[in-house]
Simulated scan of single mutants.
Amino acid sequence: MIEFYPQIKSVHVLAVMASGGLFLLRGVLAQSGHGAWARYAPVRYLSYAIDTVLLTAALMLVTLLPSAVFGNGWLAAKLGLLVVYIALGMVALREASPPRRRSLCFVAALAAYGLMVSIARAHHPLGVFLYWVS
């Protein structure tokens, strides 16, 4: 199955971009007072579908990668940030949250997303900060 690694990685990367783009769109809608559109059922279901593809591709990649990849902790850092990103995103899109809290959580979720992407690109737990400490 290793011969499918490039295709699976491409699907994963595209799903990451689609998921982040949809979250950005939903967050902007929620922040601009159009939260009903951000929570509209077809938009939510599209988000679920994209995230399912993303998770499936990620699990396939984990099964294909050699165990040495897990040595430096970058995957663990990404998974930890994923939990933070999901929690912040839920608060950012929740209508019941105060507007200031929604805004702060939206910005923090985008920062967590960006850090996850930088960790994946660098294959190091520090991600973009790796270049600042070197």
Rank of each mutant, 00 (worst) to 15 (best):
R39P: 04
R39D: 09
Y40F: 15
Y40N: 15
Y40G: 08
Y40K: 13
Y40R: 14
A41K: 14
P42S: 08
P42A: 10
P42V: 10
P42K: 10
V43W: 06
V43S: 01
V43P: 04
V43G: 00
V43K: 00
V43A: 04
V43Q: 00
R44T: 06
R44S: 02
R44H: 07
R44F: 07
Y45F: 09
Y45L: 00
Y45H: 06
L46P: 01
L46R: 06
L46N: 06
L46T: 10
L46Q: 04
L46F: 02
S47I: 01
S47H: 11
S47M: 02
S47W: 08
Y48M: 02
A49D: 01
A49S: 07
A49E: 02
I50Y: 08
I50K: 04
I50L: 02
I50P: 07
D51H: 07
T52A: 08
T52R: 02
V53H: 06
V53A: 13
V53Y: 05
V53K: 01
V53M: 10
L54G: 04
L54C: 06
L54K: 04
L55F: 15
L55K: 10
L55A: 09
L55E: 07
L55I: 13
T56K: 06
T56L: 15
T56C: 14
T56D: 05
T56H: 03
A57I: 13
A57F: 13
A57P: 14
A57Y: 14
A57Q: 15
A57L: 14
A58K: 10
A58I: 14
L59C: 15
L59A: 12
L59P: 14
L59W: 15
L59H: 14
M60A: 13
M60T: 13
L61F: 12
L61W: 14
V62P: 04
V62R: 02
V62L: 05
T63C: 04
T63H: 00
T63S: 11
T63L: 10
L64Y: 11
L65H: 11
L65C: 02
L65K: 10
L65P: 05
L65A: 12
L65Q: 09
P66R: 09
P66S: 11
P66K: 08
S67C: 00
S67P: 01
S67F: 00
S67E: 03
A68E: 12
A68S: 13
A68N: 04
A68Y: 14
A68D: 11
V69H: 06
V69N: 02
V69Q: 05
V69M: 09
V69W: 05
V69P: 03
F70M: 08
F70S: 03
F70D: 01
F70E: 00
F70Y: 10
F70A: 08
G71P: 07
G71R: 14
G71F: 12
G71Y: 12
G71Q: 13
